[in-house]
């Protein structure tokens, strides 16, 4: 942990840098424009895990899609290591809320999908890499299962393996545990925390769970809705990740949770008016 923290502090230029990102959608039914994101500025350092917290419809997923290169901002830009994002790239991988697995592919073939599309199957060791990723997320023995034969939690493990095997610098996670049952959610949250810590990836983690935001994030970015803007950015200041944070005994955890509750409750009340 200490060497990683040192590495984080050593790099001064941000890996992800959002400048004035604004996204407007035309709403065909009403003919009006909807402002999904307004003037977002955010820097994420290499090796940092930033959690994005906000009520439904605050634009946090849109923001992730802009970073992923799936949505073009109406104005403003996102830079990865200084290069402006113009579309998806092998430096970024996404874990989707609804898993987005290919139902016609087995677990093994789903995990290798990224390597296949990026034409990395000529690398001699790709089979080992795919197998390692499957082992890493705890799916050994399910290589030839189809997604429909797996539980939601297991399907998301496939989604994680598919992201890790592509060896991106940045992992974008769009409420990855949003569709998973409560118990699995806690177990997987801790596992994701460990994986992030082990691999030292830079992570943008979208969530509406306060616990996830605190337990996984080095910093928490709180979004407000109508229009989607950054309300505040909080440094958690807790070492470790997931269960390593031993959250229940940590005073800082309770302090953060209480604070975020009151912020989000106000936001939710404002959004429903």
């Amino acid at each position: 942990m200490t060497t990683e923290t040192a590495q984080r502090r050593a790099s001064t230029a941000p890996l992800i840098s959002a400048r004035g990102v604004t996204v407007k959608f035309d709403v065909a039914r009403t003919g009006k424009q909807m402002i999904a994101l307004s003037n977002i500025d955010l820097d994420v350092m290499e090796g940092e895990c930033v959690t994005v917290l906000g009520p439904s419809g605050c634009g946090k997923t849109t923001f992730m899609n802009v970073v992923a290169g799936l949505v073009k901002p109406t104005s403003g830009s996102v830079f990865i290591d200084g290069d402006e994002v113009s579309g998806p790239g092998p430096d970024r991988a996404v874990v989707f809320q609804d898993y987005a697995l290919l139902p016609w592919r087995t677990v093994f073939d789903n995990v290798r999908f990224g390597l296949e599309m990026q034409k990395k199957l000529s690398d001699g060791d790709w089979r080992d890499r795919v197998q390692n990723a499957i082992d890493m997320v705890g799916l050994s023995g399910f290589e030839s299962s189809y997604p429909r034969e797996l539980s939601g939690g297991m399907q998301q493990r496939v989604g994680l393996a598919r992201a890790f095997v592509a060896e991106p610098r940045i992992l974008l996670m769009d409420e990855p545990l949003g569709a998973v049952d409560a118990l699995t959610r806690e177990v997987m949250r801790d596992e994701i925390g460990k994986l992030i810590a082990q691999t030292g990836k830079t992570v943008l983690f979208i969530t509406h769970s306060i616990e996830e935001a605190i337990l996984l994030g080095d910093r928490i970015v709180v979004f407000k809705s109508k229009p989607g803007e950054i309300k505040e950015i909080i440094t958690t200041g807790i070492e470790g990740m997931g269960s390593e944070r031993n959250a229940q005994n940590d005073e800082r955890f309770h302090e953060l949770r209480e604070h975020l509750w009151s912020v989000l409750a106000n936001e939710a009340a404002a959004a429903s008016k």
Binding site: R92, Q97, F113, G114, M117, A166
Partner: peptide, 11 residues
């Protein structure tokens, strides 16, 4: 979202 995933992974 499968289409998005395919685009993200370079299709």
């Amino acid at each position: 979202s499968i289409i998005s995933a395919a685009k993200v992974y370079g299709a």
